[in-house]
Amino acid sequence: MDRLIYTAMTGAKHILEQQATVSHNLANATTAGFRAQLDSFRAVPVIGEGLPTRAFVVDSTVGSDFTPGPLQQTGRDLDVAVQGAGWIAVQAADGSEAYTRHGSLKLSENGILQTQAGLSVQGDGGPISVPPDVTLAIGRDGTVSAIPTGGKSNAVNVLGRIKLVNPEEASLERGDDGLFRVKGGGEADADAAVSVVGGALEGSNVNVVDAMVSMINLGRQFEMQMNLLKNAESNASKASQILSMS
């Protein structure tokens, strides 16, 4: 009886947690460069006195779905999409190096190339500074060039190159801020094979239909766990009645 209660109780608890993960993925179905989070259930034995006959359910994060999302043409000069595998290096709020696929960039008040979240884009030698009154062009290799607005069209100045990296997917972990970092700290080396597409953004890789189906399935699983708890309560009540009769 208690084994049934352990399994049903922990199963219902972690189904709610997995439901929250699916809801988070669904909420970011339109977020550029978003990578869906993957969860799974696993059984863990209860450690204690006596034989390990009881087990409970744990919801564990197995990683992220690194499948590329669809490319969406925007025509904006400061929009870039990583083509294939790879990441854009940015400076996180804590000063560490982090990685994102969200290539919608902007210029800060001080002329620093940043993401829409205000994080500085990392270049070969640090953040990329842009002078005023120029038009920016970003090449396939991440090279940022400036063309004077009122000058000659052939007077192109190279300001720097966006740091593009391609670490192993197994070595990356998602932070609470949605950015990815190398496990254990450290920084990934720049990879010249990574290329970007200008005037485009990568869409989220969340499949809305699959996410909705998962939410329905999880809702039914939660209802099943509740029914198991009701059956356990009913069995305990009937057992008490039999014992009282004897």
Rank of each mutant, 00 (worst) to 15 (best):
S96C: 04
A36K: 03
L78E: 02
Q83S: 05
P68N: 08
G86S: 06
E97Q: 15
G75P: 07
I47L: 09
L26M: 15
D94R: 14
G75F: 09
I47D: 11
I47F: 05
S64V: 03
H24M: 07
V22Q: 09
L38S: 10
A27S: 12
A98L: 12
V58P: 01
V44E: 14
V57Q: 08
L26R: 13
A89K: 08
Q72P: 01
R35H: 14
A85H: 13
I88Q: 02
P70M: 04
A92N: 15
Q83N: 04
D65I: 00
D65H: 08
G50C: 02
N28K: 05
L51C: 02
T53M: 09
S23Y: 01
G75M: 04
A85D: 15
D59F: 00
S96I: 01
G48Q: 12
A89C: 12
V57M: 13
S23T: 15
A98D: 11
G63M: 07
P52N: 06
Q18A: 05
S64H: 08
V90D: 10
N28E: 06
W87Q: 15
Q37I: 12
D39H: 03
L78V: 02
V82G: 06
V46I: 15
V44H: 09
R35G: 09
Q73F: 03
G86M: 06
A36E: 06
V82W: 03
I47Y: 07
P68T: 02
A20M: 06
G48K: 10
I47T: 12
D77E: 10
L38H: 09
A27R: 04
S40W: 02
A93R: 10
G69W: 01
Q37E: 15
L78G: 01
V82K: 02
V90K: 11
V22G: 03
N28G: 03
G84C: 09
Q72A: 10
G33L: 10
A92L: 11
Q18V: 03
N25K: 02
V80R: 03
D79C: 10
F66R: 10
F66E: 12
L51F: 13
L51I: 14
P70E: 14
Q83I: 01
N25W: 01
S23D: 07
Q18Y: 07
P45V: 01
A27W: 01
L38G: 01
A81E: 05
G84A: 12
P70A: 13
G50K: 08
T61Y: 00
Q19E: 11
G75W: 08
G48R: 13
L71V: 10
A29G: 05
S60W: 01
D79T: 10
V22T: 11
G50N: 08
T61S: 15
D94Y: 13
V80C: 02
R35C: 03
V44G: 02
G75K: 07
T67Q: 14
Q83A: 06
N28W: 01
A29F: 03
T67V: 06
E49I: 00
A27N: 04
P45Y: 00
L38V: 13
R42N: 08
A89W: 06
Q73A: 14
A89G: 13
G86Y: 06
P68L: 00
S64C: 00
R54K: 11
A55L: 08
Q18F: 01
R42E: 12
V46P: 09
V57T: 11
G84N: 14
V46Y: 11
A55I: 11
I88P: 07
V80M: 05
